[in-house]
Simulated scan of single mutants.
Amino acid sequence: MAPAARSADELIRVLDESCTATLASLKRPTREPAALSSAESSSPPSLSDIRNDVLAHLQAISKEVTAISLALRPPVSQDALKGTLEKLVGVVGKLVYAAELLPRDGTLAKRMNWTVQESLEAFQHFLSSISSTLAAPSSSAKSARDELLRSAKTVWSVVDKAQEMGDDLAAALEPPQDELKEAVEEVLSVGEELAKCIEGAVDERGSEEVKKAEMEWLGVWRKQRDTAKAKLDAI
């Protein structure tokens, strides 16, 4: 027998409780790490992976907030509202899981933590506005809907800001290309100096057989060096 469909009020309560519990967890100085699947345990997600998941789930929440704002335009579509709230239960659950994977230490992880907190708080206020809109008598329906739209705009704004910050985080997670290139070029330069020293020593004291072998080896080394440098330049 299929489970009975949940009412809009019940779905709102489930979402609100999930947000409250997650916010409490994220605000604690320490917490138990989230349980990982067997696949994740062998290869834990990187901060970059977690960031991508968090931003994707926030974007999905923003999209469903838009759908609810439309569903609550008079005449209210209860079916559309409940369907969207059901989707949000799944999306928020995924966001909660991703947020629980965030490390406690590190500037980038803390910024992501704050972003999730700000987003959940804005979303909770939106949930409250849904309840107020549904319960509002006709005399105050317009003011309730205006408040709903204001809270929706707050969610959109917070999520947009999170997406922009996500780009900054992605840049911060990238290795410093200029410094990397400079370091590699320095290593290659030192290697070339060493190769010249070897050539000089072989020319002075090496037999023809040794000279031939060393020249072949140096030729291969220089070819590999040039290939590595070309790949670096292409980054």
Results as ranks from 00 to 15, higher is better:
F126N: 04
P137Y: 04
V155W: 06
D167T: 14
L173V: 09
V210A: 08
P176Q: 11
L148K: 08
R150A: 14
E186M: 07
L149W: 02
E182N: 11
E185Q: 14
E209F: 04
K161D: 14
K153T: 09
P175Q: 10
R205F: 07
L127H: 06
K142N: 01
I198G: 01
A183H: 07
S119Y: 06
A201W: 01
A170K: 15
V159R: 11
D168M: 13
G191I: 00
S151K: 13
L169E: 12
V158A: 12
S157G: 15
Q163N: 14
I198A: 08
S129F: 02
Q177R: 14
A162H: 10
E174R: 15
T115D: 15
S131I: 00
E199W: 00
E118F: 11
T115K: 14
S143Q: 06
A141H: 04
Q117Y: 04
T133E: 02
A135E: 08
Q124A: 07
A172H: 10
E208F: 03
A170S: 14
L149H: 08
S151A: 07
L120Q: 10
S128E: 06
E185R: 15
S140E: 08
S139Y: 00
T154S: 13
A144E: 02
D168Y: 09
Q177W: 06
P175W: 07
S140I: 03
P176L: 12
R145D: 01
D203I: 00
L173E: 15
A141S: 09
V116K: 10
A152Q: 13
K181D: 11
E182L: 11
A135V: 01
E121M: 11
E185I: 03
M165V: 03
T133Q: 07
K153W: 08
E174H: 14
S207H: 07
H125Y: 03
A144N: 02
F123M: 09
L169R: 07
L148E: 08
S189E: 13
K142M: 01
E174W: 05
I198H: 01
E209Y: 04
S139E: 05
S151M: 07
M165H: 09
S189P: 00
K181H: 09
A144V: 01
A183V: 08
E182V: 08
V187H: 06
S140Y: 06
E192C: 02
S131F: 00
E179R: 13
G206R: 07
S129A: 15
W156C: 07
E186D: 11
T115H: 12
E208D: 13
K153A: 15
T133V: 02
D167L: 14
S132G: 01
E186T: 11
S151R: 14
T115I: 06
G191K: 04
L169I: 15
L188Q: 05
D168R: 13
A136P: 03
K161F: 11
I130R: 07
A122G: 09
L127V: 01
P176H: 12
